[in-house]
Amino acid sequence: MSDTAIELVDVDKWFGTFHVLKGINLTVKTGEKVVICGPSGSGKSTVVRCINRLEEHQKGIIRFNGIELTNDPKSVASIQGQIGMVFQQFNLFPHLSVLENLILGPMKARGLSRAKAVEIAQHYLNRVRIPEQADKMPAQLSGGQQQRVAIARSLCMEPKVLLFDEPTSALDPEMISEVLDVMVELAQDGMTMVVVTHEMGFARKVADKMVFMDEGEIVEQSAPEAFFNAPTSARCRKFLSQILQH
């Protein structure tokens, strides 16, 4: 198994004529935590969505565990169960109970028995600290609880990498920390994580690498101390001063 989990080499992407990603180079090692930040529209969500092929890139190479992502449906199918994703809007299945949300992937995609899937689901519900909500419908839960269910749902696939696309942006302020706490624990347990977020406190705590994006480019890429104390680019300094002034 390669030490490099994810590798992006000179990746370009366009939405129609809009050049959304420009020559992105990024390496994520196994066990590494990478935090991507930047102003809205900078392409940070798109980077994450290209990694698990929710979006197609048009130029360059993206590899996951050495497998290149191409149009070959098999290459896509082989990675999508292995790369978990947590969305800004949770995207729980509203017609299924919490437990059913969790066991669907393990049963249908991994082919596990219901009993085994339920066992795994309960394990991860414990980890996100809401074991008592298993039989509720998603709409009965608070935003913070829903997002924790979404994290548990990803974990039930036992993914190699977990991607987070602004996981706390749709939450009420008082619920942000319960989600971040779960994410910090995951980080401490050694999960490979790529997190798009503006939560700089979280970033300082867990990030091995900070990435700042603006207008489709990676402007700055460095270790957290250097990133927060001495950002080299003016754009990054300006962005940090804007989000850290409160």
Binding site: N52, L54, A77, Q80, G81, Q82, I83, G84, M85, F87, Q89, N91, L92, F93, L104, G105, K108, A109, R110, A150, R153, S154, C156, M157
Partner: peptide, 18 residues
């Protein structure tokens, strides 16, 4: 049905038919 539902299903490894 919101696009996010399909995307969430993909990320837990479900194929098109599933």
């Amino acid at each position: 049905i919101a696009k996010g539902q399909k995307e969430a299903a993909q990320t837990i490894g479900l194929n098109y038919a599933q």
